[in-house]
Nucleic acid binder design. Structure first.
Lengths: 174, 174
DNA sequence: TGTGAAAAAAATGCTCT
DNA sequence: AGAGCATTTTTTTCACA
C-alpha cells in the first residue's frame, strides 16, 4: 500500500513516541512550567482549546515523557538548609566503572539536590544544600573524601541561585 | 557582608513569619515536592488531617514562602534541547559591579535553565540546554565571549542529570 | 488549630462532529 | 483531533467544638 502512517517524525527516543510538539503543546508546557497547579479550565482557556481537549493533550504530554512530573519548589532556606554548594568529584581511575553505584548512593543522601555526570576532568558534580558551613564540610569529608574511590573534590559555595526563564517558560523559536 | 545571606532561617525574614515547621508540614512538603498535582483530598489523607485543614496548611506554607511555586518538570530533550552544559564565567574586575544586570539578561535567554552566583575564582555558572553542540558553541560565543565584561568562560558538557532525593522528598534531620 | 458538612467549581468520560 | 454536555469528584467556605 502506498499509504504510510506519518506519526513519528523523530527517531531514537527511549520509549517515547516523538510526535513533534505543535504550538498548542508549547503553550501548555510553558504555562505548566510556570504554574503546575493551574486549573485545567484556565489552562484550556489560555491555550484556546476546550477543557476536555486540554486534559487529553496534557495527559499525552505526560505519557510521552515530555512532562516528567510536577514538583513543588521548596525554599531550602526555609527547611533549614541555607548553605548551597557545588562539589566536583574526580574518581580514581579504577573506580570509574562503579560511578553509577557511587552516585546513586550519593543522590539518595539528604541535602543532595542534583547529580550531574560531566565530560572533562571531573567525573561528576553534586549540588547540595546544607544546614551550615560545617555541615557542608562534614558532608564532603564523610561522604566523599573518606571514600577510597574518590581521587579529589572541589567545593564551590553558591551565593545565590536564580532560575532561568527556561525553567518556567518556553519560548517559541523566532 | 556575609550576614545578609545566612541569617534568616528562624528569625523574622522578609515577610515570612518563621514559625517552625512541624512534622505534618514536613510530610506535606515531601508529598508536594514529589507530586505537586496531588489532590488536596489525597494529600490530607496521607498526612492524617482533614482536607480543609490540609488546604489551610498548604496555603500558609505558600504564603510564608516555604513553597515558592509549583512547576512542571519538562524533559529538555523532548523540546529539542538535548545538549546540556555548565558554563562558568569570570568577569573582568571592572565589570563585577554589573553582575546583576549581566546575569539578569542571561537568565532571560532561551535555554538558560539556571544561574548560580559562586564563591571562588569564577563569578557565576550558567546551566544551559541547547539544540546541538554547535548551538551551545554559538551561545557561549555570542552571549559571553563576545562581551567586553567577560574575562573567561569554561564550558563543561553534562552527560546526564539525576535529581537527588532532596528534590522530591524531605528528610527529618535524624 | 482543627473539623465536618454544604455549596461552588472543576475534572472526567462519552458521544458527536 | 476537537468540542459540548452530564456525571462524578474535588475544592473551598463557614459555623462550630
Amino acid at each position: 500500500m502506498g499509504r504510510v502512517l506519518m506519526k513519528e517524525v523523530r527517531s531514537g527516543g527511549v520509549g517515547h513516541s516523538a510526535a513533534p510538539l505543535d504550538d498548542t503543546d508549547q503553550v501548555l508546557l510553558g504555562l505548566l512550567a510556570a504554574d503546575a497547579r493551574m486549573a485545567n479550565k484556565a489552562l484550556a482557556r489560555a491555550a484556546g482549546i476546550a477543557p476536555s481537549t486540554c486534559l487529553n493533550r496534557v495527559r499525552l504530554l505526560r505519557e510521552r515523557g515530555v512532562i516528567r512530573g510536577y514538583h513543588a519548589d521548596i525554599d531550602p532556606e526555609a527547611i533549614g538548609r541555607p548553605i548551597q554548594a557545588f562539589v566536583s568529584v574526580r574518581l580514581r581511575a579504577g573506580s570509574r566503572s562503579r560511578i553509577r553505584e557511587l552516585t546513586g548512593r550519593l543522590a539518595a543522601l539528604p541535602g543532595v539536590l542534583n547529580v550531574y555526570f560531566l565530560a572533562g576532568a571531573n567525573d561528576f558534580q553534586l549540588h547540595v544544600a546544607c544546614e551550615s558551613p560545617s555541615a557542608l564540610s562534614n558532608f564532603v569529608v564523610d561522604n566523599l573524601s573518606a571514600s577510597q574511590d574518590v581521587a579529589l573534590t572541589e567545593t564551590t559555595l553558591i551565593f545565590e541561585h536564580v532560575a532561568g526563564r527556561a525553567q518556567t517558560r518556553h519560548t517559541h523559536p523566532g
